[in-house]
Design a protein around this nucleic acid. Structure first.
Length: 426
RNA sequence: GGGAGGAUGGCCGAGCGGACGAAGGCGACGGUCUUGAAAACCGUUGGUCCGGGCGACCGGGCCCGUGGGUUCGAAUCCCACUCCUCCCGCCA
């Protein structure tokens, strides 16, 4: 949620910033709705003030004066009855407009509207690794190793659902534990949040009203299935006031994530690159406004630390302004090299949502001088299980189809599972 | 599934038609005392919207879960809804 007062005072920066999302025109719509609300507010407030003065006088008046005074205030009450609905309507319109307006992209987010426009920041390797045999993609590796069953997943639940079975399940737990251990070391409080959430939590994090089509909803109880732990982690402090001295607050949340993936028909079919359900360890941070940009770099650093333990070649990209999610002012993606696809694909992402979510969630910081303001929130992926498994399978595959699990994870695995081996000879 | 309570400021909690933005307590902040701290005592301490001023501020509106209603006037009365807690039943 943007601050309408700031827009009113100086709309130009908002126009410029929203133009990068191709939404410069909403600034004028917002100003118009705000103007209507303010002029109605002024009229209604004056009438109410008059009514209040009259009521006080009536309370003090003698019995015989009373009736005359009550009659006199009648026109004021009547005017209010017609104007109040108009004001309510004007307020609702402004609120709806604000709710569907995304955050301002930060100047350091590059121009552009698609993932092609993202700007590479760095890589952790010189060149993508080469193989002296023909690489298999993760789906055929999964089948060969007997650890991935998409056919039965489809039979049980439909396309984009998978069964994981055998040692890859232990590998998943190892990945989760690895991510969580690193987060605890970095000062995050581990959390297992609810994954079914109320509408307010979805609204507060900015997924509603705009991303409704991507959300699963339960029919009977009007709860939404969270597409990321970001939602319940952000909502943890919904409506709260947090002392400046308690910031930053950092949570590491483990949850299953549910995504409808509407409109992606035909994209990334097969395997488990894009599935409706996957597990993830997510970072979430609450900070003061002035320290969120440092925190953003810090979260990215934690993501890279996790990535290094997995020995996956990756690059960091700065996502284009027009390609950002609605809440984000800036987003870094870590893209892992997938040898079978011959390109980098998103494994994690890390956003600074500045005060956008905090204003919606009404999570504020009490400054040391006693003042209140929305704080800043950030989120980032520590490990998204499905895609990380893919990157491990593809990057650590051997000529015979076996996969050597990164050594750092061995501590979490029985020796047998340090190497995943084909069930039959390749 | 059945039943009973409840929702008030940063927190706890009183108030059940005009004197209530709201007692009291806790917390926080400032002060007295003290070598320092604690204790004690004194004082200060809500949010939000609109307008005015460069500004410490000033004027007004709204806010006692949400929405409606009654009334000249509602935290208080009426209706609907939401949420929370407890008890019984069932169940992991």
């Amino acid at each position: 949620m943007l601050d309408i007062k700031l827009i009113r005072e100086d709309p130009e920066p908002f126009r410029t910033a929203l133009a990068r999302r191709d939404l410069a025109h909403v600034v004028d719509e917002l100003l118009e709705a705000d103007e209507r609300r303010r002029s109605l507010t002024a009229r209604v407030d004056d009438l109410r003030a008059e009514q209040n003065r009259a009521s006080k006088a009536i309370g003090r008046a003698d019995a015989e004066e009373k009736q005359a005074l009550i009659t006199a205030v009648g026109t004021v009450s009547a005017d209010l009855k017609t104007l109040e609905p108009e004001l309510a309507d004007a307020e609702a319109r402004l609120t709806a407009l604000l709710a569907s307006t995304p955050n301002l992209p930060d100047p350091s987010a590059p121009d552009g509207f698609t993932d092609e426009d993202a700007v590479e920041i760095r890589r952790n390797h010189d060149a993508p690794p080469t193989f002296d045999f023909e690489v298999r993609d993760h789906a055929s590796l999964g089948e060969l190793l007997g650890v991935l069953d998409t056919e039965r997943g489809a039979r049980t639940s439909g396309s984009r659902f998978v069964y994981l079975l055998g040692d890859i399940v232990l590998l998943q737990f190892a990945l989760m534990r690895n991510a969580m251990d690193i987060l605890v070391e970095e000062g995050f409080t581990p959390m297992i949040p609810p994954v079914l959430v109320r509408e307010e939590a979805m609204y507060g994090t900015g997924f509603l009203p705009t991303d409704e089509a991507q959300l699963y909803r339960t029919e009977e109880d009007e709860l939404y299935l969270a597409g990321t732990a970001e939602v319940p982690l952000a909502a943890f402090h919904m409506g709260e006031i947090i002392d400046e001295a308690d910031l930053p607050i950092r949570y590491g949340g483990y949850s299953t994530c549910f995504r409808r993936e509407a409109g992606t028909y035909g994209k990334d079919m097969g395997g488990m690159f894009r599935v409706h359900q996957f597990d993830k360890v997510e970072m979430f941070a609450f900070t003061t406004p002035e320290s969120s940009w440092d925190e953003h770099e810090r979260l990215l650093g934690v993501e890279e630390r996790v990535m290094r333990t997995l020995e996956i070649p990756y690059r960091v990209v700065n996502v284009a302004a027009g390609d950002l999610g609605g809440s984000a002012a800036k987003k870094y993606d870590i893209e892992g090299w997938l040898p079978a696809q011959g390109r980098y694909r998103e494994l994690t992402s890390c956003s600074n949502t500045t005060d956008y979510q905090a204003r919606r969630l009404q999570t504020r910081v009490r400054r040391t001088d006693g003042s209140l303001e929305p704080l800043h929130t950030l989120n980032g992926t520590a490990t998204a299980i499905g895609r990380t498994l893919i990157a491990i399978l593809e990057n650590h595959q051997q000529a015979d189809g076996s996969v050597i699990v990164p050594e750092h994870l061995w501590r979490y695995l029985p020796e047998r599972a340090h190497v995943l081996r084909p069930r039959k000879a390749a």
